[in-house]
């Protein structure tokens, strides 16, 4: 199976160094639609769907393999290898993908020039002095909400209700939408994502890291941004004035500006330009 199809890899931008964009939970690469075209003016921008999400090849999905974020990190490294960049890349990861980037950069630091964490949280659950914002029960309730929203019939029930199981095209249209995920996979992925705890990995990260923290994010409170800044060896924290968890969608310009400053500071250029 070719990797491009497996992860629905898209490359936009014809020149410049490579920036890889990783999407967050419950969505796919389309969430970068406000950011990617602008980045593509100066960089080669690589978009991909996490395994089990969007238009990735779910036949390659395995519950046992994708039982932790490590497998997603390995996928990211494969994607980076696939695009055949002869220089380290910048990885921009939203939310869960920030953790995936963290793990991948610890595994193969040489492949990364630096990384941008958009609304990251190394751990959602409060633990001692650590304030992740939620209790274990809260996360259980979230997972329930995920489960009830990905009610089995949303995708696979549709053709049967329509009485048209023999018309796959119709059912494909019904099921196809942005950010659709197989219900069972979505539920599994929610647990993997929201029960993860990668705090211990933070000090191992040796590459420059930009943390984009929203000023009012219910999911990743500012305390988490401060914690990350403190634990990551080479971290820059930029607070984006924004309500919500997706600044790259609701405040793309602020995000792009912060990224631009960060990359300038760390002299991210195409090797040919050097």
């Amino acid at each position: 199976m070719n990797l491009v199809d497996r992860h629905n890899i898209k490359v936009i931008g014809e020149r410049g160094p490579v920036i890889v964009l990783g999407h967050g939970f419950g969505c796919d690469q389309t969430m970068w639609k406000h950011v990617a075209p602008i980045l593509a003016n100066n960089y080669r921008v690589v978009l991909y769907d996490l395994m089990g999400c969007g238009k990735s090849d779910i036949s390659m999905y395995s519950y046992s393999k994708y039982n932790s974020l490590n497998s997603y990190a390995m996928d990211l490294l494969e994607v980076i290898d696939e695009i055949n960049s002869n220089a380290p890349v910048v990885f921009v990861g939203h939310s869960v993908s920030a953790n995936i980037g963290l793990l991948a950069s610890i595994e193969s630091p040489n492949k990364f020039h630096s990384q941008v964490m958009v609304s990251p949280s190394p751990c959602f659950i409060n633990n001692g002095d650590y304030n992740g914002g939620f209790t274990r029960a809260d996360i259980e309730e979230l997972c329930e909400a995920v489960e009830s929203n990905f009610l089995k019939w949303s995708t696979s029930m549709a053709p049967i209700i329509m009485g048209a199981p023999e018309k796959p095209k119709l059912s494909a249209e019904l099921g196809e939408s942005f950010c659709r995920t197989e219900p069972e996979i979505a539920h599994h992925f929610a647990r993997v994502t929201f029960f993860a705890d990668h705090r211990a990995d933070l000090p191992k990260c040796k590459i420059p890291t930009l943390i984009l923290q929203c000023t009012d994010d219910f999911i990743a409170p500012t305390s988490v941004g401060d914690y990350l800044k403190q634990k990551l060896p080479k971290a820059t924290l930029v607070k984006i004035k924004n309500v919500g968890h997706c600044p790259h969608m609701s405040a793309p310009q602020a995000c792009l500006g912060a990224i631009d400053d960060f990359l300038k500071e760390y002299e991210f250029k195409h090797p040919a330009i050097l």
Binding site: D138, E141, L142, F178, C179, C246
Partner: peptide, 29 residues
């Protein structure tokens, strides 16, 4: 919202609403 639904509202509904301009049939508490 209840806490879990609020989380979900931010994690899923809001990004989708921003992305697509409309969302339908979300079950929230």
């Amino acid at each position: 919202f209840t806490l879990g639904s609020r989380f979900y509202f931010h994690a899923q509904l809001t990004p989708l609403l921003q992305l697509e301009g409309a969302v339908s049939e979300f079950l929230l508490s």
